[in-house]
Simulated assay, not measured.
Amino acid sequence: MFPIRDHNPSGQTPFVTFALIAINILVFLGYFLSLDEYQLGEFFWTWGLIPARFLSGDGLETILTSMFLHGGWLHLAGNMLFLWIYGDNLEEEMGHFGFLLFYLACGIAAGLAQALPDPGSVVPMVGASGAIAGVMGGYLLLFPKAKVDVLFIFIIFFRIFAIPAWIVLSIWLAIQIFSGVSTPGDLGGVAYWAHVGGFVAGLALTLPVWLRRGAQEFWQRTDGHPPHPETQFEAARSNVPLVRRRR
């Protein structure tokens, strides 16, 4: 189950979203292609967010630098895809500068949500997913019924379905909470609580935007859909073929 696009077009060019994607990619290429495995570990140790060091007052800048680092190609690609899907619409609603501040604030909240429950951890945390989780939380508040195309991959076939954003994002959040509760300490290798913290921060920081648009009246006017015509694709399920097993 993997979101690949939404039906929520943006009426303006999302310059900040494009810039954040470009910066993340360029930073990743700058260190990942030039450092060996040992140097990469040292690099993450220096610029990643290490709870024990950060909470002792050392490396305070890492709560910002860590959100522009990624551990591998798939880590980068997944985060940038999610930012591409959800970021443009929030940038349109918040304005370019407002969206940038929102994104950074969500990333900071995500870092704190991961560090505070485990203050003795010495495992570096890297990735933009906490900030992007905040974008997803804001998207849920403003466009709960916007259609999101989700790729379902089963054992013998795959298919794309258009599903309301509130279902997609609620399932994603539930997975993060369940994984965070069931995975002790740093054993999982994924900062689940950063995802949860970023998501909650995104909801909270988007509340003023939602209230300015009339709160529940905004939902009533749009029925939870985007306040403009949705993108219409050729087929509701898309034209990705169904692949079946041959007997």
Rank of each mutant, 00 (worst) to 15 (best):
S179W: 12
A113E: 02
G197R: 05
G214D: 01
G224W: 09
L142N: 02
V196I: 13
G188Y: 12
Q114C: 07
F152V: 15
G214L: 02
V209W: 03
S170F: 12
A113K: 00
G188I: 13
L151K: 12
G197K: 04
P226F: 10
G120N: 11
I132D: 01
A201C: 04
G197E: 07
A109P: 01
A110P: 15
V135F: 03
L207Y: 15
I160T: 14
Q176S: 06
P144R: 11
I171W: 10
Y192I: 00
G127T: 10
F157K: 10
W210R: 00
G107W: 14
W210N: 01
P241E: 03
A191Q: 12
Q114E: 08
G111V: 02
S182D: 07
I132V: 15
G214A: 00
P144A: 09
F178N: 08
P144E: 01
V181W: 12
A201Q: 01
V200G: 05
H228V: 10
G120H: 05
G120F: 02
D223A: 14
R213V: 07
A131C: 04
P117W: 06
P227I: 04
W193Q: 01
L242C: 10
F158Q: 15
F143T: 06
A128M: 15
I177M: 08
L104K: 05
G134R: 00
I177F: 08
A174F: 14
W172Y: 13
P208H: 12
L187D: 05
P144Y: 06
L141I: 14
F157D: 06
V209L: 05
A110H: 09
G138E: 05
L205Q: 01
P124W: 10
L203F: 13
F158A: 15
L141R: 03
F152I: 12
W219Q: 08
D149I: 04
F152H: 06
P184Q: 09
L169D: 03
F158N: 14
V135C: 02
L142G: 00
T222C: 04
T231D: 00
A146N: 05
A105Y: 05
P117A: 01
V168R: 10
G198E: 00
V240C: 06
L142A: 02
V190E: 02
R212H: 09
G180S: 07
A204D: 02
T206G: 04
G137F: 01
I156R: 12
P241K: 14
V126W: 11
L169E: 07
F158I: 10
Q114D: 06
M125P: 02
I167T: 11
R212P: 01
H195M: 11
V150F: 00
G197D: 03
V168E: 08
L211M: 12
F152D: 03
D223H: 13
R212S: 12
A131Y: 00
G134Y: 00
F199R: 07
V240E: 11
G107D: 13
Q220D: 06
S182H: 11
I177H: 05
P164M: 08
P119N: 09
P229F: 04
P164H: 12
L211P: 01
A110N: 08
S182A: 15
A165S: 15
I167E: 07
K145V: 02
V126L: 11
A115G: 10
I155P: 07
K145E: 13
V122H: 09
L140M: 14
L142M: 15
A146M: 05
G185P: 08
T183S: 15
L116E: 03
S121M: 06
R221V: 05
G134N: 00
R159S: 11
A174N: 05
D186L: 08
I177N: 04
W172R: 11
P227F: 07
